[in-house]
Amino acid sequence: MTSLATDITFDIRALPKVSLHDHLDGGLRPATIIELADAVGHQLPSTDPVALGQWFRDSADSGSLVRYLETFDHTIAVMQTREGLARVAQEFVEDLADDGVVYGEVRWAPEQHLTGGLSLDDAVEAVQEGLDAGVEAVAARGRTIQVGQLITAMRHADRGQEIAELAVRHRDRGAVGFDIAGAENGFPPARFADAFTYLAQHQFPATVHAGEAAGIDSIVDALVSGRAQRLGHGVRIAEDITVEFDDDGGSDAGVGMVTLGRVAAWVRDRGIPLEICPSSNLQTGAIEAFGKDIASHPIDLLYQLGFNITVNTDNRLMSGVSLTDEFELLVETFDYDLDDLLDLTLNAVEAAFLPLDSRTALAELIAQGYDGTGGA
């Protein structure tokens, strides 16, 4: 339970939520990893669920990119069979629902799950089988959740067109959007320009990881070459904002003037959604230009300036967080209240890769969930 200065007490976990940036291979249960690893003969750092979960969190917090990436070696290794993919996907949905998520987009890269003999289509179908089973399991408990796949191409590979065609092929069987992920520096969206053109020709939406490991140029390329409807992270758009302070030498100096650069103004004025992942941004150094703690995260600056902010988890296992945790972090750090959480959630509804009528219905569901809490 969380209590605010307004004397409103509410349970954030019970509030309906929307998750737009959550990686399938970053959200496994430690116990499941251990069972699946045993079945395929993969060696893990620990076979104790508690210790393994701690290892993932410590690795994410280590400050070592090599160690951080090693965590995905272990999760992807146990997701190479139809059974493994389906189980992970089902549990992923169940865990989202337990956190109050009513709509979630699950992003993952099928090309990373073929060493066990699956084809790209086999892999997508296996994940969809698991997602469907998860939705049914949640319904059996009297709850509702809707999910869709964000089919992802790896930036360092050369399969962009093939993966784009895969996504379009499954658009009526669970795929709702396309993404590119992986090393941002040195692998710009321009490498996939033809694939993004293909997606646009087929009216299939795309979100692009940009403004995380790289800066403003990456964001521009995502918008131009990637034709991105959303920016994955996008937090470094704040580097195109100048903040001047009234400084009279006192400790209570206030903000004097805020000036948006041309790119920042474009992103804000057109309401291009930012998929902000607060804890992950801190761990990966995406906000190091602003500071080393969550209070230095520019999310509040962007929110107060009217950017279209959505709140996400990125990798729940590695960061050791849920969407509830991320909202609680914002409440504790920036004194957000229920109205703020509702605004952020409705931003995510509007940004979801859903038809208009579905987004309208989802917004009504969200509003009903807040009704009676003081936030609607």
Rank of each mutant, 00 (worst) to 15 (best):
D246T: 07
A97G: 06
R171K: 05
D158P: 07
Q54I: 10
D252N: 13
D340H: 14
L356D: 14
S251K: 08
A348V: 07
N185E: 13
V235M: 09
H202E: 14
R191L: 09
G374T: 10
P273R: 10
L282W: 14
P110I: 02
L317T: 08
I180W: 02
L69D: 09
L28N: 03
L85T: 00
E94N: 00
L342C: 11
A139Y: 03
L341D: 14
G130F: 00
E91C: 00
L362V: 03
S62T: 15
D121V: 05
V78N: 02
F334M: 08
Q229N: 03
I76R: 06
V220C: 12
L356N: 06
H42V: 11
F196H: 15
I151Q: 03
I309M: 07
D246S: 07
F192G: 09
A200F: 11
G182F: 13
G291T: 03
G320L: 13
V66T: 08
T144L: 05
A31Q: 09
A126V: 00
P189K: 11
E91L: 01
G53S: 03
T115Y: 06
S218N: 11
F72L: 02
D357V: 15
L341F: 15
A265V: 03
L344H: 13
I8M: 07
V18R: 05
D371M: 07
E105A: 06
S62N: 10
A363H: 07
L301W: 10
A109V: 10
Y103A: 04
R67D: 10
H170W: 12
G26E: 05
L150T: 11
S280E: 06
G256S: 15
S280Y: 01
V50C: 03
F72Y: 06
L36P: 08
G234N: 06
A361H: 14
I294H: 08
M318P: 00
A193L: 10
D293S: 09
S319G: 10
N308F: 10
V124T: 12
A363M: 09
L199H: 15
G104A: 09
E136R: 04
L338D: 08
Q229D: 06
G63N: 12
A60T: 09
I241Q: 12
D122K: 14
T2S: 11
L323E: 03
S322D: 08
D7S: 13
A363G: 10
A77T: 01
D221K: 06
G234A: 08
A228Q: 12
A181F: 05
Q146Y: 05
G291Y: 12
V224Q: 04
S218P: 02
Q43K: 12
D337Q: 15
F72I: 04
A140M: 01
